[in-house]
Design a protein around this nucleic acid. Structure first.
Lengths: 201, 201
DNA sequence: CCCGTGCGTAAACGGATGTTTACATGTAAA
DNA sequence: TTTACATGTAAACATCCGTTTACGCACGGG
């Protein structure tokens, strides 16, 4: 992406600021006023330059400015589910407590946030009350931290494959290892834990 | 905030969807088209209702719709600083690696993100590579987790006040306690740790 | 010197867009 | 029943706003 002239950068900054403050982009004339111009042509040219250089996209219509790489693109929003997805790895919208922003690279198809209860994974730095980002992958590999549904209840554990059996291992030695032979169905994997948020340190 | 009628909710949903998809709000006529109306008055009335009930704000001008409690308001953006703030608790913009979105309630004046190095706080579930949210409070109380500058280097430790002295305690027993008597100046507090992000679990 | 580019003013055009008035229907509460 | 409200159509109006044309100035490279 090419460099911007100082004036073009002023325009881009103003667009971003307006976007941040108002929630919608400025009109061409608002840009003029902000930069002390009396003609719309000046701002127009700057917008054309910004588009040519790839910093923004424009669509026909009023205020139809899209900022590429803007703040909006930096965030993904994940639902914090009250209960763990049951059935076919889906969460009903009624169970969504709230949507929280996370860094965009944490986002992904079907990912969601789950509040961890208990201290069984304290050895991996996962504490009671932490929010974990869960990727509903169909397959989890040996050694990964997963969300498992045991008797309908969700627990976070480390997965260990032992031949045909699967073990769910807590990182707190006070907790027992749950061993499941292949074919037994009381345990289901809801996904694997890929990231973590902690609100109170 | 009063409840919305089903139709009003449809309008609000469409506005949010358009905002998410395009980066700018829809025009009244776009709302009409989306909801299958042939007159702008219908959408107009819904927007008036949404404003009356406090879900949106409107300003004169095209597409000047602000959604209260929209996605944008849910996020705050904090800078990830490469090095710890030196001097008067400020970070130079050159040191900012990137800006990351976090839940809005994590934001606040002067807060920033810092990457934790080492495993000295493993006992508190703070691992190597974690990003901590630092609030540059002037005062930290006994028992709080703080970022301290020791010989110009940043470390995360738990603060313990012992009369006139201050102790910086690691939660990994392998590390020694750093004791500082009042008046000694080689230790300075950069702020306290209020939240945490972990990118790899 | 000439030419391309960035930057700006002035003025006008036309479509996009918000707003208003008037009329109408269905539903629920008083 | 009466009243209020949500909802909708139809039409017109005034302005917002993107775009275009024309002209001018400054600067740097060839």
């Amino acid at each position: 992406m090419r460099e911007l002239t100082p004036r073009q950068e002023e325009v881009l900054d103003f667009v971003l600021e307006k976007l941040e403050r108002s929630g919608y982009p400025p009109s061409v004339r608002e840009i003029c006023e902000a930069l002390g111009m009396s003609s719309t042509r000046g701002a127009q040219r700057h917008l054309e330059a910004l588009e040519r250089k790839g910093f923004i996209s424009r669509a026909p219509g009023a205020r139809a400015i899209q900022v590429r790489g803007g703040l909006r693109e930096a965030a993904a929003y994940l639902p914090l589910v009250g209960e763990v997805p049951a059935g076919p790895l889906r969460y009903a919208s009624e169970e969504v407590e709230e949507w929280l922003p996370v860094p965009a690279r944490w986002g992904g198809r079907g990912r969601f946030l789950l509040r961890v209860r208990g201290d069984s994974m304290i050895g991996d730095g996962i504490k009671d009350g932490d929010l974990v980002v869960v990727d509903p992958s169909p397959e989890a590999e040996d050694g990964e931290v997963v969300v498992a549904l045991v008797d309908g209840e969700a627990t976070v554990k480390r997965l260990r494959r032992r031949g045909r059996a699967v073990e769910l291992v807590a990182s707190n030695p006070a907790y027992p290892v749950l061993r499941v032979e292949r074919g037994e169905a009381e345990v289901r994997l809801a996904g694997k834990v890929v990231a973590l948020l902690r609100e109170r340190v």
